[in-house]
């Protein structure tokens, strides 16, 4: 009983001492403080280090999350930019093609040119490789009729052979059933340009060279439509292609030339259908062409790619 009273008094005195020291700002003995500091210092250091590491990880995590979110936003923006760039590129190409076609149209004001839509060439082809034809997305509803010549800014492509309301089919000049009245630009020699199943185009019935006269056809000569009404009729002076080989034999009355078309007939995308044009040539139209070839404009004067 006495021992318990003594300890209670000691506790009470200790509390009073603490309260007194607190009231007077006492910090305790320096020796004790130093010892405590020495023990606590490494522990505090370790704990502080750990806290800093945790803080760094926490901050890094937050930063990574922010970066991931930012990256996602940037990826979306990049994807949108790529789509825009693709669209821009397509529009640029389409614009360029339209400008070329417009230039061709301006240079041939004698022709009523109906611009087919951009996808005219890619609507369809022929089910096989031996027949050469294209499907256009313009038809009778757009004024297309059977027999209309079809061209691009670089030259002649073919002729409309079938027409439906919203579509038409074009027989290419490289088809085995195609025959076009053609003329060698340099010598003015005329012939007939035939396609073939393999797609090779041959200019036939070119007169043999006269003695002492320049050759009627040589490699490199430019060939265009003659406008003569002796075959499937096309307007005159439409560029067709360039002579790449000449087949000549003294035994034959005529010579032949292999012609490579100016238009890449396998990758046509945009064409012009010549509507409202009649096969009967205008009086002196050919003579006028011969008199002033420059009147046919830059597209007709220099159609080479």
């Amino acid at each position: 009983m006495v021992r318990r009273d003594r300890s209670s008094w000691m506790l009470a005195l200790a509390l009073l001492g603490v309260m007194f020291g607190l009231a007077n700002g006492w910090r305790g003995p320096a020796v004790i403080n130093g010892a405590v500091a020495r023990v606590l210092a490494p522990i505090t250091h370790v704990l502080r280090g750990a806290r800093e590491q945790v803080g760094i990880v926490s901050t890094s995590t937050r930063r990574i999350e922010a970066l991931i979110a930012r990256n996602a936003v940037l990826e979306q923006q990049n994807a949108r930019a790529q789509v825009e760039a693709t669209k821009y590129g397509q529009l640029m190409r389409e614009n360029e093609q339209l400008r070329q076609l417009f230039g061709f149209k301006k240079s041939r004001i004698d022709l009523d040119l109906l611009g087919a839509s951009v996808r005219a060439g890619v609507v369809g082809g022929e089910p096989g490789a031996l027949v050469h034809a294209l499907w256009l997305d313009q038809g009778a509803a757009d004024g297309v009729v059977v027999g209309n010549p079809v061209a691009s800014d670089r030259g002649l492509i073919g002729r409309v052979v079938r027409v439906y309301d919203g579509a038409s089919q074009v027989q290419l000049i490289s088809d085995g059933g195609s025959a076009v009245g053609a003329r060698v630009e340099r010598s003015r020699a005329t012939g007939m340009l035939f396609g073939s199943a393999s797609g090779e185009m041959t200019l036939r019935f070119i007169p043999q060279n006269g003695p002492g006269m320049p050759p009627n056809v040589v490699v490199g000569d430019v060939v265009h439509t003659s406008g003569l009404d002796n075959a499937d009729s096309f307007p005159g002076m439409m560029p067709i292609g360039q002579v790449v080989a000449v087949r000549q034999s003294d035994e034959r009355p005529n010579q032949e030339a292999v012609v490579r078309p100016f238009v890449d007939l396998g990758s046509v995308e945009l064409v012009l259908v010549v509507t409202g044009w009649r096969s009967e040539p205008l009086p002196n139209a050919d003579a006028a062409n011969e008199a002033s070839p420059a009147a046919n404009g830059p597209a007709a004067a220099d159609p080479r790619p």
Binding site: G124, E126, P127, G128, V131, A133, W135, V161, R162, Q169, V170, Q171, D175, G177
Partner: peptide, 8 residues
């Protein structure tokens, strides 16, 4: 079918 879609 092919003949229907052909120019030939």
């Amino acid at each position: 079918l092919c003949d229907q879609l052909s120019a030939a």
